[in-house]
Structure formats: structure tokens, C-alpha cells
Amino acid sequence: MLETKTAPYTFVKLGIYYFSRRVPSDLSHHYNASRIMYSLRTKSGAVAASRAQRAAQQLDEHWYHLRIRDVDLPGMHLLRRQSHPPSGVAMVARDVVHDAISLSEAVRIYLRLKGQGRPVTFQRAAERSCGYVIDVCGDKDITSYTKSDANAFRDDLIKRGLAGSSITRVFGTVRSVINFAASEVGVEMTNPFGKVYYDRNAGVTSRAALPLEVVRSLQAECRKLDDDLRWLVAIASDTGMRLAEVAGLLKEDIKLDHPIPHIVVQEHPWRRLKTAGSTRMVPLVGAALWAAHRVHKSVTQSDFAFPRYCSPNKTNANSASAALNKWMKPQVPQKCTMHSFRHSMRDRLRAVECPADIVDQIGGWQTEGVGHGYGDGYPLEVLAKWMKAAT
């Protein structure tokens, strides 16, 4: 049973990857076996590496807590229990005081418990957003921050030139960190970073949709240049998928042998989806179908459809965006980017009078209303009909 080089803590049996890790000797009394082994349920080395890494991290965290639990509290022998007050001394009622927890400690708790398996951007967002608070207001106990601190923080973000949407994200992260840490240590508090007023539309620029003739021109250039970057553009152009969704695809997510060729958009350890509704199937038509065939034929040394921008640890959508937007800029109207393909797809589906809830399902947009959460949605045949009509 040899560990594979491409996926640590794994071995392959009949083409299937298995996780395998020895139980540390000092924790062996907690287990009835000397090794932990189970199937990772995949034949993909990239998927196996990511799943094994996550499992190893979870085990390391669990083993840390087991070791802490097995060790006596330092100074236990010095503790005294006093059931009665000294003679002549009256009992004085006191409020229970919680252990002080600073904002920097709150961030560490938040990341340790909620950051497992999350992308590096999750950690950066928490550290950066709360770092801004510490720069402006100091690293205080989380219960010591006031509304004036929150307002000063808002004013500093505005002074930094952040757009309203960016300020909303920063405040949301700070609130989440403080609320989670307060819950963990058993503190009831009103979070001062909630309900802070600012102009949420300040500095926010709307992205323009690409005119259909520009989409067609770009697709013709993609067929002419015929490389991995242009395959990525072509798939986005006729599916309306988000750039990160395309860049993070496995080849096996592209179903060309199905009666209706389509892409399965699903969450992967290296690329999370924006919303729960983003999990979906998108029919392949037009330039997207051409590009999907090119990927399957040309990418032979990787499980990833776009290995230039994808690894078992992350999808580098920012690099893809920078490269592709630079290529597109001379060929598209002002304010148009890769994301404009999503706006264009919505307009193209509107133009053929596609029902709004079908549009939402194709693009992975949230459909309002409780009833839309029931059932499995429209079948692939219906989606394909409207996609072909809009192509």
C-alpha cells in the first residue's frame, strides 16, 4: 500500500483512490484500529488530492483537541474550593463576567472553526476586514466596541475610496466574525457594526451587456485562435456561466456523450459556488459546444478542463479574468468585461420570451418565492430548447 505522489495520504485500488493515515501512537487508545482508511469515491487524482487534504486537516484538528483533553489543566493542584464565606463576611452578589476576547482572537476562533476547507480568500477577507477595524479602533474586547467606533470605521472605509458594495462586504465579514465569536464564548451582545448607514450605491458602476453582434465577433475570433483561453471565452459566451465556474471545471463535468450535451456545474474543493442555486446543468449549444469538444480532444494531461487556471487547491479566476479582459478590451464597448456575457445571455433569453424562472435556472440566479424551492426544476430538454432559441 504505497502513498501516491500526486495525492498524499492516498493509495489506488482498482482505479479508485483511498484515504489512508496512521493513528498517532499517543492517541491509539481512542481507536480500535491503527490506521484510518476509507474510499474517496473518485478516480480523479485532482479530486482525491483535495479530498485527502481536507480529511487530513480535519484529523489534525480533531487530534489536537484529543491531546488537549487528555492533559490535566495546568495548576489543577493549586485550585481551592470554598463552599462557605469566611466568618463575619457577608455574601455579595456579583455578575458573571465572561473571559475577555479581543477582535484578533475572535478572528482566530472564526477561522479555526469555520475556515476548514474554505478557499484562501475566506481567510484573507476575515483578516483584512477585521484588520481595518483594528487599524481604526484598536484591538479591543469585542463587547467594548461602540456605535461611534462603527461609524468611525465606516468613515475610514469611505475615505479609502471603497465603493458601497465593497463596504457592505467588509461590514458583513466583521459582523459575522464578532457574532460567531460571541456565540462561541457565550456572550449576548448587540453588534455595533450592524445597521450602520452609508450609501450602498456610491461608486458602484453597472456592467454593460455585450451586444449580440459583438458576441458573434468574439466567438469568430475564438474559433480562429483556437487555444485554451479562447475555449474558456467561448464556453462562457454561449452558456452565461460565471468565469470561475468555467475555469474550475473538470473534464468529466462536460457531458458530451449525453443525448443533450451539457455541463454539470457543481461545487469542487478548489472552486466553491456563489449560491446554493448555482448547482445546475447547462446545455451546450453554439460556440460553447464547439469549445467543449476542443477541450475534450486537446486536454490530455490533466483532469481539469483548464489546468492553466486550476489546481487541486484553488481556481485562479482572477488571473483568468485579467488575461481575458485584456484581450477583449479593444474589441468590446466601454465597461464590458467577461462578466458581460452573463448580462448578454439574460437579454438573449428575454428576447426569445423565455420564462424568467427558466432564465434563472440556466444562469444559476436566485428565483424569488418559496414555491421555487420545491422540486428539481426544469428538465434538460426544456433548458436546451430555450438555449438553442437564444443562440
Rank of each mutant, 00 (worst) to 15 (best):
D228C: 11
R216E: 13
G240D: 09
L229C: 07
S237F: 05
V233I: 00
V215G: 05
V215E: 08
K224A: 14
D238S: 07
L212P: 05
C222P: 13
G240I: 04
C222T: 15
A236W: 02
T239E: 03
A236L: 03
D238I: 01
A220G: 08
W231S: 12
E221D: 05
R223G: 03
R230A: 05
V233W: 02
L225W: 00
R223F: 00
D226A: 03
L218E: 10
G240F: 04
A236C: 08
D228L: 12
Q219I: 10
A234K: 13
L229P: 03
V215D: 06
E213N: 15
R223Q: 13
L225S: 05
A234H: 10
L225C: 04
I235M: 12
E213D: 15
Q219V: 07
E213F: 11
V233A: 00
R216G: 09
L229K: 13
R230Y: 03
L212A: 08
R230C: 09
V215R: 14
E213V: 13
S237M: 07
C222F: 11
L218D: 06
A220W: 08
T239S: 04
S217Q: 10
W231D: 15
P211N: 03
P211I: 02
E213S: 14
I235E: 06
V215Q: 10
V214S: 05
L212F: 08
W231Q: 10
R216H: 12
A220S: 12
T239H: 04
E213A: 14
D228T: 13
I235S: 09
V233Y: 01
I235V: 15
D226G: 04
R216Y: 06
A234S: 15
D227I: 03
D238K: 04
A236P: 00
D227S: 03
D227M: 04
V214G: 00
E213Q: 13
S237Q: 07
